[in-house]
Design a protein around this nucleic acid. Structure first.
Lengths: 339, 339
DNA sequence: GGTTAGCACTCAACCCCGGCGAGTGCTAAC
DNA sequence: GTTAGCACTCGCCGGGGTTGAGTGCTAACC
């Protein structure tokens, strides 16, 4: 008993129907709604086979069947293979990005918002991260008599800043002079390298103990955290789906959505492919046992990569989501390339 | 029939019990659990009176009573009046702020997190906003050949930045010179005033068309948005309470929690008092018909004010929340004053 | 006159049960 | 290989009885 063409078509119909209705689908439904030229009895036989093959589950004997994770897997692989992702939503997405975005975080936030609105699922957007951002410019701006703002601009145009304490008698010009020499020394370094280089520089600069100490911890703090900012949109969208009408399930899902770090590390597991689809157990997260995660990447001009993702019930509108993610990925890549 | 001492004590007991259990409380419970030296029958008579006075509601005839909004109001006013808010949580909160906070947004985020953890309700923290922040320093940092980062530091130490386009042949030194002259011109101005002053300066600076245009829109964008950043913690905490086990209610609440702007404007309605408590209908927000909002203020060294708030069911542990908010307010004020 | 014991009454919550209907598996005929 | 027919299964739904918490009222008590 193999998986022939007809079985596949029937399976597809079942999945389509279940995605739409969230109700176990019976043989009669298939034979009537999707005209395959087959009677319900025949469908029944095929469904029985499909169940044996592991593509369908039966909640109980007198209910219809629901697709298993394996079925979704097949379905999605098919989608990805055919590549028939009509990007109808292109214009909708483009329209959303007409307004000028001030800064990366705004773009990220906005993208997550748009993504969740378009899909009606939860959307997550990770900022670009790459080999290691390199320092391009470093500048100190006076804030008060004994504090300064240190701003670094990296090669990817990302800006990081923090307020650090400095010794008292540093005026604007002195700070600028220091900034220039530091920029000269550190330009082209990654943040990690900068941490190592600092002690050498300390030797040559006398009394600015405090300043260098501040810089040091600033570099260290930023060297690690690549997932600094994660944008999440439509957190509560999951409640639209009957799968999560159980309060307890909803709660554990939603509290996961509140821990940015964990969420980021889940989403960040993105392979080499244009799209990654993880279905149910494949997510490896117990709270998401009946969720699917679809992710895609976008890239910036200088080879950094970011990830965008959508989280929804396993019964997800995969083709729609894939198409929207694809378009959004393009838009973001474009936006970041001519920046 | 007035509101005598005994009625008040009974009402208090009812509220206490209901806050604890969320179950309509009957006369027998009161006479047994809280020994008032009265039989259930007497309590019953008093409860009947209290209902007539509008302090109690009865879901149906054979259930116990639940406190009305009016009852909570009385209860809270009593609390505030007596001022017996023992701040036991002081040390817990202080411990949370030991680590150095890099920047305001971090503090805000962290405060919301701590607040929601301690109270088990949803917490909202608004950044300080005041009369109008005044520019202290303005600095331009080169980002790429045709873009610069403009950083302004205001008198409250708040930093705003944005990337703007500049004409091509501006190197670091030129930008610094421009920064210095702009700082001289604009120092002490509010952002609004800066918008008006800019055209005059334009006259004196020749070809930097692009730059000034960028600055202009940057000022304008920032002049309005006082609620730039709102920190929210424990969004899904509301699901811990049976009041919100109804999915539909939970959904409308949670989606309100996702619209930062709306939430900010709700929270921001904080009076002159140290604390503001809005109970149920008093919130004026239909989605929060059976929520209460408790807010408090903190202040920065230079007279700016921020708001912290907690949102929970009307059946809220008001004394606990008030005490925690009070302590947190102090901590934040301290943190921002010696900055 | 306030307090209390007693009692009848109410009503949501719970459980049990039978009917309904969607859906299946099997068999026999085409 | 396909299909019609039929017996069977089982979750869902609605009705009816039971339970128990809680009330309001009345009469007796201090």
């Amino acid at each position: 008993m193999g998986m022939d063409e007809r079985k596949f078509r029937i399976l597809q119909a079942i999945i389509d129907d279940y995605i739409l209705t969230a109700v176990p689908v019976g043989s009669r439904t298939i034979s009537k709604k999707y005209d395959m030229g087959l009677s319900s009895a025949t469908i029944r036989n095929e469904m029985s086979d499909l169940e044996e093959l592991g593509y369908l589950d039966q909640p109980h004997v007198s209910a219809g069947r629901i697709p298993s994770a394996k079925a979704y897997r097949l379905y999605v692989d098919q989608l990805l293979h055919q590549g028939l992702l009509h990007s109808d939503s292109e214009s909708a997405i483009r329209a959303h990005f007409l307004g000028r975005m001030r800064q990366m975080e705004d773009v990220i936030d906005h993208a997550a918002q748009v993504l969740s609105n378009l899909t009606n699922y939860t959307a997550v957007v990770l900022p670009p991260s790459g080999p290691q951002p390199r320092i391009r410019t470093l500048q100190l701006v006076p804030v008060s008599s004994n504090a300064a703002l240190v701003v670094i601009v990296t090669d990817s145009g990302i800006v990081r800043d923090a307020v650090i304490r400095v010794s008292e008698q540093l005026d604007s010009d002195t700070l600028y002079a220091i900034s220039k020499s530091l920029t000269k020394e550190l330009s082209g370094c990654t943040l990690k390298e900068a941490v190592e280089l600092l002690p050498q520089i300390t030797g040559r600069m006398q009394d600015n103990e405090k300043l260098l100490q501040g810089l040091n911890s600033f570099f260290q703090e930023n060297a690690g955290s690549s997932h600094a900012h994660v944008a999440i949109g439509g957190r509560s969208n999951i409640l639209n789906y009957p799968e999560y009408s159980d309060t307890e399930k909803a709660r554990s899902f939603l509290s996961l959505m509140e821990t940015r770090d964990k969420l980021a590390s889940i989403i960040a597991q993105q392979g080499e492919m244009a799209f990654t689809v993880r279905i149910g157990p494949e997510t490896g997260v117990p709270e998401m046992a009946d969720c699917s995660i679809v992710t895609a990447t976008y890239s910036t001009g200088n080879g950094q990569q970011g990830t965008i993702g959508v989280i929804g019930p396993t019964r997800m509108q995969y083709n729609r989501v894939l198409s929207i993610l694809g378009t959004m990925g393009h838009q973001l890549s474009e936006l970041f390339s001519d920046d």
